[in-house]
Structures are given as C-alpha cells and as structure tokens.
C-alpha cells in the first residue's frame, strides 16, 4: 500500500492538531499546501512563526499584544475605572465588536472547572484583585459565559470583590437575542429573559 512521503504525513499530523480538524480535512489542507505557490506557502509559515514570536499577553489585562500594553490598555480614551472581566480573548473581541463598552478589560484565561483541575490559582484572579485595588476601579462587569462554570466563576469573583468598598459589581444580563423573533428562541432563553425582565422606564 502506497503512503505519502514522510514530509507530507508530518504536515497532515500538524493540521490534525488544530481544533475541529479531522483526518480527512487535515489531508485536504496538506494537499492544498503542496499545490500552492511557494509565496503562499512561505506566507503561511511566516505568519505562524511571527504570531508565536511577537505576540504576548498584555501586562495589564491579558489581551494579545505585540507591545507591553495592548491597544485597549494603551488607549487614553478608555476609562480605567470600569473593568470588564472575560474568560478568553475571543470574548473580549466579541464585546469590542459591539462597540458599546468604553472601559478596559481583564482576561481570566478560563473558567473554574474542578473536573478539569482548574481552580482559582490557574486563572488571573490575583492580578484582578490587585488591579481593582491599585487602579481605583469603581465598576466591575462580570462577563463570563452563562454556563454552570461561567456562573460559578462569576459568583466566586463577586464574593471576592464584595469586600472592596464602594465597588459596583454587575453581571451581564442573559435573555432574548436582539432582532430575532420571540418564537424562535428556545425555552431556556425565554425563561431566563422572563426572570430577568425589567420595568419599562
């Protein structure tokens, strides 16, 4: 039985480590690279290496950056007294896309998940407490996902931050998606929206 030369199987194996990529897709990507121009292949390899050598976590918030401070932390127009706590950088990006939030961020690096051995010491909890204390933060918005783990992580942080005087701690609301029809929403979402309903001002 004929097999690919070793260099090709090495590439296939590398692609297989990517999330959501199975053996078939990995093989397709590898063959695509084989057939691509030398310039395109070099661009891909360079991009991978560059991201690994130049990108690091922001010293302050944990966002990705190629300098000491990320673009949000370095922006003087962003209010440092309002802090939005997220689990991952991708959540930060999602909130940035909405363009509403004018404060700064803190990236935890995950959620509490004892089943996977992830406790508070594996997240940037200590750094968060220091920032709240040292940077005169007045509001913390807990923006972890509304899952069991996300909710427990938010509760944990809320209890921890409850000791800080004159600090307002809030949790992102969960409910109906904007612009969608009510009858398309699932029951859990509708139940959450009902229990979180508010008075029309």
């Amino acid at each position: 039985m004929a097999t690919y030369p070793r260099a090709v199987t090495r590439l296939i194996e590398a692609f297989r480590k990517l999330p959501g990529v199975g053996p078939k897709s990995a093989q397709r990507y590898a063959v695509h690279v084989l057939r691509a121009s030398m310039d395109d292949a070099r661009e891909l390899a360079d991009a991978i290496l560059e991201v690994k050598t130049s990108i690091k976590p922001c010293k302050r918030c944990g966002n990705y950056t190629d300098t000491d401070l990320c673009s949000v932390c370095a922006d003087p127009r962003r209010d440092p007294r309002s802090l939005c706590v997220v689990s991952y950088v991708r959540d930060l990006m999602a909130i940035e896309r909405a363009g509403e939030f004018r404060g700064q961020y803190h990236v935890l690096g995950g959620v509490l998940s004892p089943a996977d051995g992830i406790g508070p010491e594996d997240l940037t909890v200590g750094a968060l407490i220091e920032r709240v204390r040292d940077e005169h933060v007045t509001e913390v918005i807990l923006a972890t996902s509304p899952s069991v783990e996300g909710d427990a992580t938010a509760l944990y942080l809320a209890r921890l931050l409850g000791a800080v005087p004159e600090l307002e701690v809030t949790r992102l609301a969960s409910g109906l998606p904007a612009g969608a029809d009510l009858d398309y929403a699932d029951q859990t979402t509708i139940a959450a929206a009902l229990s979180g309903r508010r008075r029309l001002e």
Binding site: P114, G119, V148, A152, L155, Y156, R159
Partner: peptide
C-alpha cells in the same frame, strides 16, 4: 472540587462558588 479538598478543614472558595450555583 470536594474530592480534591477531601480532608481539608475549611471549604475552599471554589467549592463554595459551585455550592451557591
């Protein structure tokens, strides 16, 4: 979390967070 904390004298904060939930 409880299994990890077995034998400890106080409830760790992470157990308490999941307890509230």
């Amino acid at each position: 979390a409880l299994k990890r904390a077995r034998g400890a004298s106080r409830m760790p904060a992470a157990v308490m967070a999941f307890g509230e939930e």
